[in-house]
Design a binder for these strands. Structure first.
Lengths: 237, 237
DNA sequence: CGGGAGGTTGAGCATGTTCAAAGGATGTGG
DNA sequence: CCACATCCTTTGAACATGCTCAACCTCCCG
């Protein structure tokens, strides 16, 4: 019945074209949503005209689990490609928390994973050189796409321009370009159209000092299910 | 009765000396805790010997609200000064979620604030120059100390070495030193012992492009209380 | 008074930026 | 289906920001 609750939430669906703002900094979001298809970014524009991309949203990602707790958005969300999203109202969300603790535990879990990714990006920006940052991002994106079944071997669709990569990694587009060329010459990656293939994944992971365990793909510890089942029993009394 | 619940949690207390690891990367945390006094950091060591400081923990901060959802820690936590902490067991935590939804809402809220700070650090590391980063961090720390009543005008105790500042900002200690000197020469700050005074706060905020609203000090929107009260009623049925 | 950690200084160097221009690719309207 | 416009990628060269290394200084604390 919990899956039924989830299905109900994602029944309705909205579409947006590519390169369009879904939510703007300063606005008051009225609903949460799940990204069903396509790719989007969280970002912030800075007064000097530059921008920083904070996270990529790929299918299955929730945006934002708790955003309605904040008065206003402190960043914007924009599409990179045409997307399909399932909006979830504030009320449905509250209903979910009250009546379906196991579902809310799963959502909670995913927000933890996102937090882990934010920490990882901080480490990247603070302490990895440009090659390491690019390599890390490519690995991270491959693993995330893998986790939701959107890979084909070691390749997946990456609809990003080099400018967007630069805005994510704190690098200029020109330098990103040079690093990607270098990776290609070394046979680490192949890119055509927007299909990226990480030929030499382990080589990239070494450059990146990448460790997939930081992304916590293993899922939550087993015993948690027991806790949340207990929670459910209490509430249903 | 909710405050009673909180008091109960923080009744027990542990002490640690300065410059000691409280929780290490890779370990399985058995309890959550609240920092009562002193200062601590979340950080990660990298294979090349460098480290990245991810967040500062100051009195009132919770660490980590949800950490027990993760199998293992993806970073370590260390004290900077001697600290007092109140440990909270996994069971008390679960109990809190079940019986005191308004308290858990408050905790939830604080984890959101932390997430906002992580995003802000990403923007800093990705798109601000060295002066901007230093200025931003000083402003952020002042505001956070203000929020918990640990300031005296525009000054507060900052027990950080320049190396630690560098490890936070992705800069070398030498460069941090030069920037701080510059700020002093320009009359922006005064530092003696470990007392920092942001003489020209608005000047710093301009250099930093600092906007305190990103830290979401305003608190959660009013109507949220209603939601969580409703939640409580349902559970108490 | 001595030891150690942290702060300060200078000089050379490296990584990555900026600017400008040219070369693809993609998509749209005629 | 071509022509054109636009956006993206690529290239080179000069430049800047911040790093490294090494030495020295200063303060604190025992």
């Amino acid at each position: 019945m919990d899956t039924a609750a989830l299905d109900l939430l994602t029944a309705r669906e909205e579409r947006f074209p590519g390169h369009v703002d879904i939510i703007c900094e300063g606005s008051v979001p009225r609903s949460v949503f799940v990204l069903i298809e396509g790719m989007a970014i969280r970002y912030r524009d800075l007064p000097d005209g530059s921008r920083q991309i904070i996270t990529f949203l790929i299918p299955g990602d929730m945006c934002d689990l708790h955003v309605f707790l904040l008065k206003t958005m402190d960043h914007s969300i924009a599409t990179l490609t045409p997307v399909r999203i399932a909006p979830v109202s504030r009320d449905s969300m509250m209903d979910l928390f009250i009546h379906h603790p196991r579902v809310s535990a799963a959502l909670w879990w995913s927000s933890l994973q996102e937090e882990a990714m934010l920490r990882e990006r901080i480490v990247s920006l603070g302490r990895r050189d440009a090659r390491g940052r690019v390599a890390y991002l490519l690995c991270e994106l491959l693993w995330r796409h893998m986790a939701v079944g959107l890979t084909n071997g070691r390749s997946f669709t990456l609809p990003l321009t080099q400018t967007e990569l630069g805005d994510t990694l704190g690098l200029s587009a020109v330098h990103v370009n040079r690093i990607l060329q270098d990776f290609r010459k070394q046979g680490l990656i192949v890119m055509e159209r927007h299909k990226l293939n990480l030929i030499d994944l382990s080589g990239l992971q070494i450059i990146a000092d990448f460790n997939e365990s930081y992304l916590h793909f293993g899922g939550a510890p087993e015993e948690l299910a027991d806790y949340f089942d207990g929670l459910e029993r209490v509430r249903q009394k």
